[in-house]
């Protein structure tokens, strides 16, 4: 890993507990379909987890459960010591502390880049507008697009939009960042700029869970690679071991298909 100092070094928020996310016996169904089956996973503060697996294996669903974009039916999810229940207040509280980046960016098209970043600061954190804008500008500089602040998302390239989405999440100063296939909807020449931004984040010690098929990124950044198939965690290991000596048959098959 390179040790280049980043433009605006960030202090990651101190988690209150050493365990960032703990998932115990998680089960979820879509109607009759058992999409997540007895998921158990413990993510320590500062850890970078890459989740991979074939499509439909439940990896996106799992990380979307962590900020309750998806409800789960049984099992426990504890985010930095707070257990997710049906209590909407708790859910909102956790969403404020957990940043999320989506495959399709989900920027607000009717707001400028700067307004996208300041919206939650102003309305959720109750920050004065000017202060929020200064903070947002700082994060836009960090993702290297300060000059686009007054444009609308529709005027930017996919890679730029995804970096805005990362800046928007970072503005809330999250303790944990979730990435749901952040580069899957990008043109190939834009993948690198987004991955570089994420590498920078990892170097600053952010706790990250990343669903991705970018195995180069996994090797470079992850502490642990989690492989899922058919709603279950099939194998988890440090990246060197995971890629060099996969244990489970399905892991071997998956790796043989994506690594050529």
């Amino acid at each position: 890993m390179t040790e280049t100092p980043t433009a605006a070094p960030l202090k990651p928020t101190k988690l209150k507990t050493p365990v960032a996310v703990e998932i115990i016996g998680l089960n979820k169904w879509y109607g009759d379909f058992h999409v997540l089956r007895d998921i158990n996973l413990k993510v320590m503060g500062g850890e970078r987890i890459v989740v991979c697996g074939p499509s439909g294996s439940g990896k996106s669903t799992m990380i979307r459960c962590i900020n309750q974009l998806e409800e789960h039916q049984s099992g426990r999810i504890i985010v930095d010591g707070v257990e997710l229940t049906n209590d909407l207040k708790k859910i909102d509280e956790i969403r404020r502390e957990v940043g999320m980046v989506f495959q399709h960016f989900n920027l607000f098209p009717h707001l400028t880049v700067l307004e996208n970043c300041t919206l939650a600061l102003i309305w959720v954190r109750k920050m004065p507008k000017q202060e929020a804008e200064e903070l947002a500008q700082r994060y836009l500089r960090r993702v290297k697009i300060p000059e686009q602040a007054n444009k609308y998302p529709g005027q930017l390239s996919g890679g730029q939009q995804q970096r805005v989405a990362i800046a928007r999440a970072l503005c809330m100063n999250p303790k944990i960042m979730l990435f749901d296939e952040p580069t899957s909807a990008l043109d190939p020449e834009m993948v690198k700029e987004v991955l570089d931004t994420m590498v920078g984040l990892a170097e600053d010690g952010m706790t990250m869970m990343v669903v991705t098929h970018e195995m180069g990124f996994a090797r470079q950044v992850a502490n642990r690679v989690v492989f899922m198939d058919e709603g279950q965690i099939v194998e988890a290991n440090a990246p060197e071991e995971f890629f060099a000596h996969p244990q489970h048959e399905r892991t071997k098959l998956f790796l043989s298909q994506i690594l050529r």
Partner: peptide, 28 residues
């Protein structure tokens, strides 16, 4: 649906999501 999720993920409450993100686009 992504607009609702994007708004939820940054911690906006139901009324904030509706007022700030969904309605401006829907009315337009």
């Amino acid at each position: 649906k992504g607009q609702y999720e994007g708004a939820m993920a940054v911690g906006l409450s139901y009324s904030q999501r509706t007022r700030l993100v969904i309605l401006p686009q829907a009315l337009k």
